[in-house]
């Protein structure tokens, strides 16, 4: 259940930004979630609904979720592949000398606010 901790972090960040920019209500927050970020969007949504009710400026705030496809790069054959399908092992040459290029991030993209 680290989704709850993540939700608290998002709310803290948004409240800070709201203070800096004198925002009074935040209508939505768009969060980009990598496929291999270990964050489960459905849990994030549940924690979100519970946690925003305790805030002042985000009570009705919607959480919009945008997935990010995970891609791994193989150092031996210099090709990329979908991480979710093949994990650490390159499907092109069988090498394990691979690293994740994109897909483990959890990022606040933008907010809609008044």
């Amino acid at each position: 259940m680290h989704e709850l901790g993540i939700v608290f972090n998002i709310i803290d960040t948004i409240e800070q930004i709201a203070k800096e920019q004198s925002l009074t209500q935040v209508a939505s927050v768009t969060v980009q979630v990598g496929e291999v970020s270990t964050v489960i969007p459905h849990y994030l949504e549940d924690c979100w609904k519970w946690a925003v009710k305790k805030t002042d400026i985000m009570k009705e705030c919607k959480l919009i979720h945008e997935p990010i496809e995970a891609i791994t790069f193989c150092e031996d054959c210099a090709q990329t592949y979908r991480t979710v399908d093949f994990g650490k092992t390159c499907p092109h040459c069988g090498s394990e000398h691979t690293y994740l290029v994109v897909g483990n991030e959890v990022q606040i993209k933008e907010i809609e606010a008044v």
Partner: peptide, 8 residues
């Protein structure tokens, strides 16, 4: 719409 682009 305010762009944030920040890791959570």
């Amino acid at each position: 719409i305010i762009e944030i682009k920040q890791s959570v």
